[in-house]
Simulated scan of single mutants.
Amino acid sequence: MRDPLTAANRCMVSPARIAEVLASVKTVYGATQSRAEALEEQAQEAEDAKLAEAAEAGGEAAPEPPDCQGQNHHVISRPIAEVLKDHPTLSGLYEPRDERFVARAKDQESHCGYQKWHREVDLEVMKWLRRERRATPEEFMAKLREIYSRKDMRKRFPNGFGPAT
C-alpha cells in the first residue's frame, strides 16, 4: 500500500519552506562557484603577469636600444604568442613579434622598451584569449584593432598597426 503522505508532509515541512531552502542552497552554491572562478582567474592573471615579467627580465619583449627614438611596436608580443600557442582556434596562425602586426611609435616616450602600458595591453589581450576560447582570427583582429584605436593608443601609434615597412 502506498503512503498517502509526501516526504514533505511526513517531515511536516511546507512546500514554501522547501522552496526557500532550495533557493538558499542555490545561492550558496552559486557564490561558491563564483568564488572558485574568481580565484582561478586571479591565478591565471598572476601567471600571465609572471610571463610578461619574465619576458621583460630576459630582454625578450622589446629591449631598449641605446638610441631609442620610438620603436616599432610588435602587437603580437612574446607573452601574447605564448598564450596563442595553446589557443584552440588561433594556435599556429601567429608568430612572436609577428612582422604582419607592427605599429610605429610616434616618439621615444610613446614606445621604448617594455613599458608599463605595454605590459597592461599584453595582459588584457592574454586575458581575452583565455576567455574567448572559440575566437576566430577575424574576432582576434577586431579585438586588437579595438585596443589600438583607443585614444591613448592612437596618441602613441597614430597610424595604427599593419605589416612592417
Rank of each mutant, 00 (worst) to 15 (best):
W128H: 06
A142C: 04
A43H: 08
N159E: 15
A31D: 12
Y29C: 12
T32P: 00
P65H: 12
D86Y: 08
W117A: 09
A81T: 00
P63E: 15
R156V: 09
D152W: 15
Y114A: 02
A49M: 13
Y114V: 04
A38D: 14
E64L: 11
P163V: 00
R131S: 07
K106H: 07
E37N: 10
E45Q: 15
T32M: 04
G92N: 10
D122F: 03
Q69L: 10
R104V: 09
L93Y: 07
D86G: 14
A23D: 05
E60W: 10
S149D: 08
G58H: 07
L90R: 02
E56Q: 11
K106D: 06
R10N: 07
V21H: 01
Y148F: 15
P163E: 12
H87C: 06
F161H: 00
K127A: 08
A36N: 08
E40W: 05
E95H: 05
E56R: 13
K26H: 06
R2K: 15
K106L: 12
D48K: 05
D48T: 05
R150Q: 15
A105K: 04
W117C: 06
E37Q: 10
A61M: 01
I147Q: 03
A19E: 14
A54P: 07
Y148R: 04
F161V: 01
P88F: 14
Q42A: 13
K116D: 11
I80Q: 00
A49I: 15
G92I: 11
Q69N: 08
A38L: 09
K127G: 09
G162H: 03
E138I: 02
V75G: 00
D98E: 09
F161D: 02
A46M: 11
E45P: 03
V102N: 05
K85C: 05
T6E: 13
D122A: 14
L39P: 01
R130K: 14
V83A: 04
G59P: 11
P88W: 13
G59W: 01
A31F: 09
E45I: 15
L123N: 02
Y94D: 08
E109V: 14
D107Q: 09
P63N: 14
R10K: 13
I147W: 12
A46G: 12
G70K: 06
A23L: 00
L90E: 09
L39A: 12
Q115W: 00
I80Y: 00
E40M: 11
M12E: 15
V102Q: 03
V83Y: 02
T136L: 04
A23N: 06
Q71A: 03
W117I: 05
T6V: 07
I147A: 02
M1R: 15
A81F: 03
H74I: 00
T165G: 04
V121N: 02
H111V: 04
W117Y: 12
E120F: 05
D48P: 02
R100C: 01
D107Y: 01
V25A: 09
V83M: 01
H118M: 04
P15S: 13
A62K: 07
P88M: 11
E138C: 06
H73W: 06
A61V: 03
P137G: 07
H74S: 06
A16H: 14
A19H: 10
E53Q: 12
T89N: 13
R154N: 08
R2Y: 15
F161M: 00
V102F: 03
Q115P: 01
V102S: 06
A43V: 13
E82D: 09
A46C: 10
T32R: 10
Q108V: 11
